[in-house]
């Protein structure tokens, strides 16, 4: 499986955010998108998964088979929002996404165990702290299988210990043949990653 972007550019509100991006990553690889605020990290992820149209260039997903026709179908997108309902329990939230997204992978309680929320599944999502909410959102990536993870500031609000745990989860995903594209300010401590710097520094 290979994800390639050629000459990619995007606009927001009529303003060119970035243009002429090239990158390609294959199975088991990770791409770290860095850059200052407003450089277009989030925009790039949204363009990749198809939430925003690309102003120019192409995005190619090759060798993924009929099962994953587009990036949107093949990707888990973890945006700024956690996509969890405060009125429902953590388990209910995850069970919904597991059923809705299909391709079940881990059981809900296994996934919660992986992110260190093993004993809190019964709690309403609203009672969790910021970091716990983010971890619950990360558990969503584990309950159904997608080869590509598009992560937007995945570690926002996580403490050091949870971050280490999350790094291990990402490494495990790569070992399973997954692709990771993460927009972040913080080094994620991943082994041999590619890096894409957006903005003036580029």
């Amino acid at each position: 499986m290979r994800l390639t972007a050629q000459d990619l550019g995007a606009e927001r509100g009529g303003e060119r955010i970035f243009s002429g991006l090239h990158f390609a990553i294959g199975a088991g690889e990770a791409l770290l998108v860095t850059g200052p605020n407003g450089a277009g990290k989030s925009t790039l992820l949204q363009v990749l998964c198809g939430l925003l149209p690309a102003a120019e260039g192409t995005i190619l997903l090759e060798g993924a088979g009929e099962e994953w026709p587009t990036v949107a179908a093949a990707a888990h997108y973890l945006g700024h929002g956690n996509a969890m309902k405060p009125a429902m329990s953590v388990e209910e939230n995850l069970r919904f996404w597991r059923e809705f997204n299909g391709e079940p992978c881990l059981e809900v309680d296994e996934a919660l165990e992986e992110v260190g929320l093993g004993s809190l599944g019964y709690l309403p999502f609203s009672t969790l702290s910021t970091g716990q909410r983010r971890r619950a959102a990360i558990a969503r990536l584990l309950v159904s299988w997608r080869p590509i993870w598009l992560l937007d500031e995945p570690t926002a609000g996580l403490d050091a210990r949870s971050e280490t745990r999350f790094t291990a989860l990402m490494e495990a995903h790569r070992a399973d043949g997954g692709l990771i594209i993460a927009a972040t300010h913080w080094p994620l401590h991943l082994q041999d990653v590619k890096e894409l710097v957006l903005g003036d520094a580029a």
Binding site: S129, D159, R161
Partner: peptide
């Protein structure tokens, strides 16, 4: 129950830190 749930969430936080 609500207070206990909050307490449980915070206690878990303390343990994981």
């Amino acid at each position: 129950i609500f207070a206990m749930q909050r307490l449980a969430a915070r206690r878990e936080e303390g343990r994981s830190a």
